[in-house]
């Protein structure tokens, strides 16, 4: 008796939703010249999905441990502004500038990790607090003109902006996304750390009893998120060719939404990076497609919200059903 397990089924559902959306937009927006389903547009969708997918890798790790990170958007701004300062005030090479950005990302992630994992502050509150702290720090270190008015710092040297382009239409950000998603998936499925993440998410108590350092595992997940955010910030500033204080405003929900749509349960212990990638693609497709239909863009938020609620309800009811079934089977076996 072979039954499809939940992971496979959930994967098929998210792929199915993505395909349905693509087909739907192809039909609705495809009349005539095919506004949606053409290579130029689809590659643009993947490009738009890249940043949430890259940052989503770290966020997925955190959500698998049953945590959450609300500070990723502000962290992006802080990393961007740090690099802008180095760009504006020093003559250091761009590689050093990017390394400094990554270092700031790692430090931010470490802060989150220490607050959440070492001091046991609830993730939601802890990262909500760092969200405003990181944003405020961005304003504090922002570049100002002679009158003290904040200005956006151009970062348009060709040795940096090439990152925002690509080999033809194959943007570097997409290549980076593929590498990071692959690395994330391998870490998750084939390393002890990955297994530990699932164990911590499934039950912290059981994980502790089986000898897993829960605090360390959670902390590393936050540090990894800091790294992915820094990579996201580098590509964002390279594409914008500038750093502003508003970068990443309201961004934090995108990777979370991508993960949830892709089957990473907020209750922890399930899901993977590929799922998050599918979720990110789904969100980007939705945004892009709604624009093509010339309808009010506000509807995309209604659709996004509705889909998130629907998948969460599915995840919850499916989990409850499976638990009940397992209990019933267990009871039956007990009787025999």
């Amino acid at each position: 008796m072979k039954r499809m397990n939940q992971t496979t089924m959930r994967r098929l559902i998210s792929i199915g939703m993505l395909l349905i959306l693509v087909v739907l937009f192809t039909i609705l927006a495809g009349a005539g010249k095919g506004k949606f389903f053409n290579f130029d547009n689809l590659i643009e969708v993947v490009r738009d999905a890249s940043i949430p997918a890259i940052i989503g890798v770290g966020v997925t790790f955190i959500i698998i441990t049953a945590g959450i990170d609300l500070s990723t958007g502000s962290m992006m701004a802080l990393v961007g502004m740090t690099m802008a300062n180095i760009y504006a005030y020093t003559l250091l090479p761009f590689s050093v500038m990017m390394l400094a950005g990554i270092l700031v990302g790692l430090l931010c992630g470490l802060c989150n990790g220490i607050i959440v994992a070492k001091f046991n502050v609830p993730e939601f509150i802890g990262t909500l607090a760092t969200m405003s702290i990181f944003r405020a720090l961005t304003y504090i270190i922002a570049i100002r003109d002679a009158n003290g008015v904040i200005k956006s710092q151009p970062m348009n040297h060709s040795q940096y902006t090439w990152l925002g382009t690509g080999i033809g239409k194959f943007y570097y950000v997409i290549i980076a996304m593929i590498i990071i998603v692959a690395a994330g998936q391998i870490t998750l499925k084939y390393t002890r750390f990955g297994t530990n993440l699932y164990s911590v998410g499934a039950s912290k108590k059981a994980a502790t009893l089986s000898g897993i350092d829960v605090a360390k595992t959670r902390l590393i997940a936050y540090v990894i998120t800091g790294f992915t955010v820094a990579i996201g910030a580098i590509f964002t500033t390279a594409r914008l060719q500038s750093a502003t204080t508003a970068i990443g405003m309201d961004f934090e929900f995108n990777p979370i939404a991508a993960a949830v749509v892709g089957g990473v349960a907020l209750s922890g212990g399930s899901g993977d990076v590929i799922g998050t990638l599918i979720g990110a693609l789904f969100m980007a497709t939705l945004e892009n497609g709604v624009r093509k239909l010339s309808i009010n863009t506000a509807y995309q938020y209604v659709i996004k919200g509705a889909i998130i609620i629907a998948v969460v309800i599915f995840d919850a009811t499916y989990k409850a059903r499976m638990d009940r079934k397992a209990r019933e089977e267990g009871a039956k076996e007990g009787l025999e």
Partner: peptide, 19 residues
Amino acid sequence: GAEESAETQVQIMTDCINQ
């Protein structure tokens, strides 16, 4: 509408150029 975000506006610009 770019929802007050330069990142979104850049994405919409690319989209409009493509279209």
